[in-house]
Simulated assay, not measured.
Amino acid sequence: MTARALNSWPQSIIDKIETLSARQDALRAETQLAQTREALTRSRLGEALIVALVARAKAEAEARSVAGRAYRATGLARATPDRRNRLRRLVERLQDRRGPKGQATILAASGLWAGAGGASDLADMEAYAARGADPAAQPPAFFDQAWYLDRYPDVAASGQSPLVHYLLRGGLEGRVPHPLFDHGPYLGQHAPEMGALGLTALEHFIRLGGPRGAAIHPLFQLDHYLIQAPELFETGEIPFLHYLREGAARGLNPHPLFLTDYYRAQAGLGPGDEPLLHYLTQGSAAGLRPHPLFDPAWYRDAYPDVPAAGLDPLVHFVLDRGEGGFSPGPWLDARTYFARRGSDRLPGLDALSDYLQGGAWTVGEPSPGFQAAAYLAAHPELAAEGLTPLERWARLGVAS
């Protein structure tokens, strides 16, 4: 029997069956065609999105580079050179014998005191010096009073004000003024100039190194921080000190692999708590992650020689710069990733930093079994969220 036209009303059961069957076949064909068109459209949109994301990553990298170069190029204008020769040191020893009033003069000349300015500062310095080895007498300086006294018990026993001790003796003896001052590498880089000027490491950093953009800690990346706080080009404040003073509270990130707000939420920190210091002194050992894709507990288990060397896992990973093929966690296999990244790999970067700075959009399978393009196609909102596919996957803890 010849089937009726699809839009005609059937007159018998057989006619109805034939018509319904024809309609089903037609709808199936239309559905398949629509799915094919949707797949093609999604594929084209995905390709266009990846091109845009690659361009964005390159633009961000260029912005960081330009900011860093500009800051370093103008560093000489911000620097405040000083010299502590033998005569000045002799005068300082005499001033020290005068007690708090003379010690305040030493503090004022150092340039370390970040007070309000004016005569009140000298009075505050004298009051500070009079409190001696009081752990609670924290000066307005890049100097951790309580930490210094705990690290150097002989200073506590002497009863002398710790910052005065550092200026007169501690700095010359190589003592560290703050737990976030990566002292050894800084000395190695600036020792000749420090020796020529007679400055301690902290004085050199405050007067010369910091204004010129010198590295202070492996987990503080100047270029990355500057694009988050462009006002520093106008204020002239040392970026690392800005981070300690207000940047951390604002949620600014000191390094691409340390996300301040992400870590703060894990650790349950309040606005006044400094997250980077907390991570290095407590959080890392407790297995708290500084970034969704970096797992310090996993890293210690995977590379047992790292804790034996006395290095924090993230510090070790960053300093290795990808040379050892270390992976940041179970989500990204560094050797597999670098092999697939090929010649596009950015020089001097670890696998995770490279992934976050463009590799996420050019390596189709950054980790075995994880198809980045498919994940991006399923979650195009990643582009607006500023997340990479692996980062979103790790945040959710699932691969869906």
Rank of each mutant, 00 (worst) to 15 (best):
I17C: 06
I17D: 06
T19G: 00
L20R: 12
R23H: 09
A29E: 15
E30F: 01
L33C: 06
Q35V: 11
L40A: 12
T41G: 05
A48S: 06
V51Y: 00
V54E: 14
E60Y: 05
A63K: 12
R72P: 04
T74Q: 15
L76M: 10
T80H: 07
P81T: 12
D82V: 14
R83I: 15
N85H: 12
R88E: 15
L90C: 05
L90V: 11
T105G: 05
A108R: 14
S110T: 13
G117W: 14
A119D: 15
A127V: 07
A129W: 02
A129I: 10
G132S: 13
G132C: 14
A133K: 13
A133T: 13
P140T: 13
F142G: 02
F143K: 10
F143A: 14
Y148E: 11
R151E: 15
V164P: 03
Y166C: 02
Y166V: 02
L167D: 05
L172N: 01
L180W: 04
H183N: 09
H183D: 08
L197F: 00
T200A: 03
A201M: 03
F205E: 07
A215H: 02
H217D: 08
H224A: 09
I227M: 04
P239A: 05
H242D: 15
E246G: 02
A249H: 03
L252W: 12
H255W: 03
P256S: 12
L259P: 00
D261S: 14
D261Q: 14
A267C: 04
G270N: 09
L276D: 01
L280D: 10
G283D: 11
A285L: 08
A285C: 01
F294S: 01
D295L: 07
A302G: 02
Y303P: 01
A309W: 00
A309V: 02
H316D: 15
F317N: 05
D320T: 07
E323M: 13
P328T: 06
D344G: 08
L346Y: 02
G348I: 11
A351E: 03
S353P: 01
G364L: 08
P366Q: 08
S367D: 10
S367T: 13
G369C: 10
F370V: 06
A378M: 00
H379S: 03
P380N: 07
A384Y: 00
L387W: 05
T388R: 04
W393H: 09
V398I: 09
V398M: 05
A399K: 09
